[in-house]
Simulated scan of single mutants.
Amino acid sequence: MKKIVILSDTHIPVRAKQLPDILLKACEEADLILHAGDWQTLDVYFELSAYAETIGVAGNVDPWEIIDRFGKKKILAVDDVKIGITHGDGTGKTTEQRALAAFTDDDVDLVIFGHSHIPVMKELNGVTLFNPGSPTDKRRQIQYSFGMLEIGETWKLEHIFFDKEE
């Protein structure tokens, strides 16, 4: 069974000074970490990479060194699950529609995106759309969140919701 932590919109150090402990504990058990953009600093990448292989894309507020390192779209296969990652920013349409449209010509099972900070998990046309929300900037959401994907003979995807640490 592979454990994959999914996150987006960390916005460090603008929205938070550090990643929350609940997220870091999940990273300790992760085989892979996926980040859907708006890191804001490469320090987040280096911190996550200390736990597990970290793959991601750049978001709309990321500096050039993040855009240059990660690009705006990725497709990877983990066992039999084909995963597309994008941030979801742009003009026209909704964030979900832009994320799905980024992979129109690709045969993916799962599209991971961010940008809105709104946790989403739904299926459209046989593709699961997943926004993990944000572990550091919940905006108008009730709780902070990130995602967990477990891949074995089948795959299971869920949000991990939590309150701000004291």
Rank of each mutant, 00 (worst) to 15 (best):
P13I: 06
A26D: 09
G133H: 05
L157P: 13
H117V: 13
R98V: 05
P132C: 05
K2R: 13
K74C: 12
D31L: 01
V5Q: 06
A30W: 11
R98L: 09
G114E: 07
I85T: 04
V108I: 04
I151Q: 07
R69M: 11
I142F: 09
C27S: 14
H117P: 13
K93Y: 14
I83S: 00
V5H: 06
V111D: 00
F46L: 07
D21R: 12
F113H: 13
I55K: 01
E166L: 09
P119A: 08
I33Y: 01
L100H: 08
D62G: 03
F103V: 04
K3L: 14
V111M: 01
K138N: 08
L34M: 03
L42R: 06
L42T: 11
M148T: 15
G56H: 02
I66Q: 01
K156R: 13
K164D: 12
I55T: 02
H11E: 08
T94R: 06
S134K: 06
N60F: 05
G147L: 04
A99F: 07
Q97F: 00
E28N: 02
I112L: 13
S145K: 07
V44N: 01
S49E: 06
V120C: 13
T10D: 04
P20G: 08
V108T: 03
H115W: 11
G92K: 00
V127C: 03
D62M: 01
F46E: 14
L23C: 10
L157T: 09
G92T: 02
K93Q: 15
P132Q: 04
G71W: 15
A16E: 11
P135F: 02
W39P: 03
Y45T: 10
I55F: 07
A26R: 10
K82V: 15
L149G: 00
K3S: 09
V14P: 02
T41S: 09
P132Y: 08
K25T: 14
A36W: 11
E47D: 07
I67T: 09
E153Q: 12
I12R: 04
P20N: 06
S116I: 03
N60D: 12
D89W: 15
D21A: 11
D106V: 01
A26Q: 05
T154E: 15
E158L: 05
L34N: 00
D9R: 00
Q143T: 11
H35L: 04
E150V: 14
S116V: 03
A102K: 02
I85N: 00
K138H: 10
A52K: 11
F70L: 15
V108W: 00
T91E: 12
I55V: 15
K164Y: 12
I118M: 06
K17A: 12
V120D: 14
K122H: 09
V127H: 01
G152R: 10
I4R: 01
E96I: 04
L129C: 04
D106Q: 09
G133Y: 08
P119I: 06
T41F: 03
V5M: 11
Q141V: 03
T154Y: 14
D31C: 03
T86D: 04
E123N: 14
K17I: 05
E96H: 00
V111E: 00
I6V: 15
S145L: 09
T128R: 01
D43Q: 03
I160N: 04
M148F: 06
S116D: 12
I118T: 15
P13E: 06
F130R: 00
D79T: 15
K122Y: 08
H87C: 13
A50R: 10
L48Y: 08
K138E: 07
L157E: 07
T10S: 10
